[in-house]
Each structure stands twice: as structure tokens, then as C-alpha cells.
Design a protein around this nucleic acid. Structure first.
Lengths: 137, 137
DNA sequence: CCAATGAATAGTAACGATTACGATTTAGCT
DNA sequence: AGCTAAATCGTAATCGTTACTATTCATTGG
């Protein structure tokens, strides 16, 4: 997923092209890590001093629904990153300081015994937390 | 973990005994599922109509720190349940409607390759989401 | 190229969950 | 019983997120 592809996808789904959307996407293209709505606002402040919460949150959630962004929640705060180009389903090691991630191959769901629990499974979350090399210093 | 053991642990750590704490713990003993602060308030409303947020949140967080409760976050809301009596480290299948859980044996961390990522790992989360039999109907 | 139209945005208010604070009450000790 | 620190109440403040109305803007069709 890159900015061009994302904009195509938006157009395809009937969303309009705006500079703000392009620039928001560019922020994610430049930062390959989980960032918050506030981070986006801060980064774009020089360009768009009055960028509205409504705009940020609505667009982030649109991007996320379209599969342009991946989403997680750390410390009660939603964080987003560009969807990994990797085609295979995988999980992440996440730096709790800067949001940087590292892919972890495989998925624990594969090794699970047959589901005889009576539960209808709809999703799962596997994340490993820690601190990246730069943030460990 | 049960109410008696939890109260002993509290006393041991220098916390005082109060009826509210006992009754809060009893709520968790009766409900073997993830519940929210609001659920606790609702359940105890007949007994303690004016139970304060301060009291609830402070105690929940104390219980959690002492390992009396397990904590997770669903939909941006903190949820708590009595710590499983199972001694082995394990994970849960969680019903998104009622919070009921089912233990899943083993932990995906064990099957992970040696950590050569440069990350210092401090924790992980593996949760499976779905709907229990009762809530699937 | 221009006007129409419906989506996108700004500015701000509302909201829900959580945390914080001063005043008061209470448990545990002497 | 009286003292002291912890616990609680009532409520306000905070934080992240969502919602609303008026306005602006991208797209489309003449």
C-alpha cells in the first residue's frame, strides 16, 4: 500500500480527492510506525494550522475501513500505521515508546486445537510489546 | 484467587479492610467474566447507592496491580475479571457481548524464534474474540 | 468555463471513560 | 476513647473521540 494506490482506492469507492487526504496519507508513508491522531495533527500543523479533529478522525477511520491503514489501541489511544505490504497474515512486535514495529511470522491461531468451545470466533489479537533498539538506550 | 485470599493479600500489603472492597471482590467472584467499572457500580447500586467513581477505579487498579484481577481493554473500555486459578500461563477466548471467557492452553511466545530483532520484549497480548454459545443465539 | 450539488472541512460543543481534588469519614492502632 | 493515615464521597477536571452546523470545495454536466 502506498499513497498513490490509496488515493486510487478512495476514488474507486466514491470518495473525493483532497489535498488534506493526500497529505495525511503521506504522513503515514513517511512514518512506518503506529502513530496517533494527535501525531498526525502535530505533523501537519505547519501545513494546516487549523486542521480539525473531525477531519482527522473521520479520515483515519475511513482509511482504516478501506484497509489502507492498520489500527491498534495502546494505552486507551487509537494508533494507526500504513498497512504492511506483506501479503501473508502476520503479527507485530511494537515499540511502546515510538510505535515502530517488526513483523513476526506466522499466527498462533494456526496451532490452535479445533474449536470445540461453543464460541463463534470472529477475530483475534496478538501483539508483542517492548522497546526498539533506539528507544532502549 | 478468591475473596478471602484477596483480602488477606490486601492486608498483607498494608491496605485496609473495608466492606466496599469485600463487596467489590464478591462481585467478581460471582461473575467469572470481564466486567467494567460501570458494571461494578450497577451491581452494587442497591447496596451502595452513592458509590464513588474514585473508589471504584482506585480499587480496581489496586486489585489489578496486586494480581487479584486480570485486566483487558475492549472497545476503549477497561474490563476486569478475577484472576484464573490456573497456575500455568495461558490466554483467553473472550465473548464480546457478555465478557465470558474460555481458557486457551499454551502461549504463542513459546513457539517464537529466538529474538534477534533488537527489541527488548516486555510483554505480549494474545486474545481471541467471538461470541459464546448463549450470546450467539 | 461555469453553475449546481453533495461531500469534505472548520470550529466548536458534546460525550463517555477515567483521573484528580478537597472535605469528610472510617479502619486500625495505642 | 482518641489519634492518624487511609479510604471514601461528591464533584470537577481531563483526555480521547464523536457529533453538529455553517461554510468551503471537488466533481460533474451543461
Amino acid at each position: 500500500m502506498d499513497v498513490t494506490k490509496a488515493i486510487h482506492l478512495l476514488k474507486e469507492k466514491g470518495f473525493k480527492y483532497t489535498d488534506k487526504r493526500k497529505d495525511m496519507l503521506q504522513v503515514f508513508a513517511n512514518e512506518l510506525r503506529y502513530i496517533s491522531a494527535k501525531d498526525v495533527q502535530e505533523t501537519l500543523k505547519p501545513h494546516y494550522p487549523g486542521l480539525s479533529f473531525d477531519t482527522i478522525y473521520r479520515n483515519l477511520s475511513t482509511f482504516s475501513e478501506l484497509g489502507i491503514l492498520e489500527e491498534t489501541e495502546l494505552d486507551g489511544e487509537k494508533k494507526f500505521r500504513f498497512k504492511c505490504p506483506t501479503s501473508e497474515h502476520h503479527h507485530h512486535l511494537i515499540c511502546l515508546t515510538c510505535g515502530k514495529t517488526k513483523e513476526v511470522a506466522g499466527c498462533p491461531m494456526e496451532q490452535l486445537p479445533v474449536n470445540d468451545s461453543g464460541f463463534t470466533v470472529t477475530g483475534h489479537k496478538f501483539e508483542i510489546y517492548g522497546y526498539c533498539q533506539a528507544c532502549s538506550l
